[in-house]
Each structure stands twice: as structure tokens, then as C-alpha cells.
Amino acid sequence: MKSLGNIRRSFAPWTDPAAKPFISFKNVTKRFGDFTAVDDLSLNIYHREFFALLGASGCGKSTLLRMLAGFEQPTAGEIILDGTDMAGTPPYKRPVNMMFQSYALFPHMTVEKNIAFGLRQDGMSKDAIGERVSQMLKMVKLEQFASRKPNQLSGGQRQRVALARSLAKRPKVLLLDEPLGALDKKLREETQFELMDLQQNLGLTFVVVTHDQEEAMTMADRIAVMSHGKVVQVATPAEIYEAPNCRFVADFIGDVNIFDGKVVSADGTSVELAVDAGLTIKVATSDMPAKGSSAGFAIRPEKLRVTRQPPANPTVNASSGELWDIAYLGDMTVFHVKLKNGQVVKASSLNAQRAVDDPFTYDQDVWVTFAEDAGVLLKD
């Protein structure tokens, strides 16, 4: 069975028409004076899903999360959680908990007391609190730090305390607002996988807000890409990356090369685009734009091949060019090639071997080629 990218798990309730959403935003709008932060947005999230809201600053993703938590009220629309309309329900009565980017730990309390705080507010018995806190400490591997205060912990340890405190009350939904932003790159990558494992083991629904594309791609079952208060595309990470539904998503997620041209033919299975300076692109697609119409083509750097020799057919999906820049990144090498039409494209090659025979150098004449199914036709 073919799929777009590798699949982390078979969990995919959004593909089942009979599946009932766990969280529904129905035509939700949020205005702050004359500014519309969320604009008539509808979105479904399913039970046990790890869902990411991804977008640039000011796109409305944090406002959406705060409305779900109850810290903000919608100007219009409904938010349904587990079959219940959340309208008028205060934050402390909602079956959700929120983990903030700053962690918001109490500096005068020990790790143990920070985790127990919400449980004491709920009137849980002392023995039950002790048992629950022990479970949380074991879960985040901080048993030996129970008596320390937040200023005696590393950033990663404080992040785990905040996570344990958020999960101690066993909410139906955990909301994470830029949860890993304060961690260094290596620790952030390690924590991403820990969060994924934790979410699946607990069987909870996680909704994370992030502007970090790699973070969303790593952790989420699905991603909602947002722009100007609207959801532009909702799909799995592989679908977002390999099959963006528009130019904005193609350009926002990862590196991409975009060509603009005119449709010269469409035969039902493929489309040919004429690009400047005689470059012809043939793309396998079921979308059939009208002949003569303008269209775009997006292709990722790793789908381009750089060679010294011309291909068998140098007139389609191929262009000669000059190698302008080379960046060796360890796991891969990135090439910047100026094509004969003047456009500079980025290509990347995996460094599968330590030594390279006859490596490329600056200013060489090269060819850039790609397969018909290597990129996607852009609708706008």
C-alpha cells in the first residue's frame, strides 16, 4: 500500500465518517475591537489525537487554544467538548488543563507541592494526593527531585514538573502553548518524543500550539496550518509536506522551490507547464487546469537531482544551470543552482557515505532533473 510518507501509527478516526469528534469548533469568531483574531473557523479534533495548531505569530492559534481553555469567550460560534457546549463554563470547571510556555511554577514550593497544588484545591484526600504525586513523579522520571524547588532544576526538569502538574488532575484534554520553546535544540528534540510516548500511554487528547514546523511535524497526528485567523489546511504531517493544498502551505512548511508557468497541455493524468526560458515541467496530477491558464509547481529540495551529465530527455523536467553555493550540513549537502532561466533553486542530497568520489565544486555547470511525481501542482 502506498502512502505519503511513513505512518507513525494506524490511528486515523478522521477518515471514518461515523467517528464523532471529541472537540468541535463550529463557526467560531473572536474579535478584539476592530481586530479579528479568529475568523469563522470550524475544526474537529478526535479523542486520543495529538493535534497541532501551526502558524506564524498573530495567526490566531493561541487565541483558539485560550477559548478552548475558557480564558477567552468566542464572539460568535460554538465550542463543543465531549458533547457539551462550553459556552459560559469557567476555566476551572472545564475538563482541560493548560501547560504554558513559561511553565508558571510556584517558586516557593517544592516539585512535590507544585504537582499537588491543583489536587489540594480540588479537596482530594492527603493519601490520594500522595499516591497521585508519586505516580506523576515516576511518569516524568523526577522522583529524586521531589524536594527541590524550581530554581534548583534545569529547564528540561522544570518543563517536566509543569507537565506532571498539568496531568495530575487527569484532564480529558491537555493544552500545550509553545511548551518546548524554552528548551535547547537537543533537549527539545528528546522531549518531543517523550511527549508523544506519554500521550499514547495515557490515552489523552493533546492540543499543542506552536510556530515550530519541525515540532508539529514530529509530534502531531494531524496539523492545522493557520493564517489570519483561518485554517488553511488540516492534514497529517506527510500530507501537509508532500501534498500542500495551496501556495501558502507549500511555502510555509519546510523548504520548497516554486515555479510559475502557463498550462500548455492536460491529458487527464498529467499537466505540462511552460516556464520562462524554455523550461517545460510535466507533473503527474488529477487536477486539470484549463489550457493557457497560469499555474504553479512546488517541489522539495530533496526531490531534485543534481548531475554533471544531461538526462536522456533534457527538454522536460530538466534544466542546465550553474552551481552557485554548496553547504555541507553533515547528514546532507545543500546545493544552490542558478538555472538557465535565472531562477535559483535549492537541491539537497543525503550524505549516505563518508567519502565522496569527485565531489561538486562552486561554479560548475550542472543539470537539475526531477520525476513527474516529485512535486505538486499549486491551485493558487
Rank of each mutant, 00 (worst) to 15 (best):
V283H: 00
S286K: 14
D287A: 09
D287Q: 12
D287M: 04
M288L: 05
P289Q: 05
K291V: 15
G292A: 06
G292S: 06
S293H: 08
A295L: 10
G296P: 14
G296Q: 06
F297M: 01
F297P: 01
F297S: 00
I299D: 04
I299T: 08
P301L: 01
E302V: 02
E302R: 13
L304R: 02
L304G: 03
R305L: 07
T307D: 15
R308P: 00
R308K: 09
P311E: 03
A312W: 02
A312G: 10
P314R: 07
P314E: 11
V316M: 09
S319R: 01
S319V: 08
S320Q: 14
E322I: 06
L323T: 07
L323S: 10
W324Y: 11
W324Q: 14
D325C: 01
D325E: 14
Y328T: 09
V334K: 02
F335L: 06
V337Q: 02
K338D: 13
K338A: 11
K340A: 10
K340Q: 13
G342T: 07
G342Y: 07
G342N: 09
G342M: 03
Q343S: 04
Q343W: 03
V344D: 03
K346Q: 14
A347Q: 10
S348K: 09
L350T: 07
N351W: 01
N351E: 07
A352H: 13
R354Y: 02
R354S: 07
A355G: 02
V356W: 01
V356H: 06
D357F: 08
D357Y: 06
D358Y: 03
D358N: 15
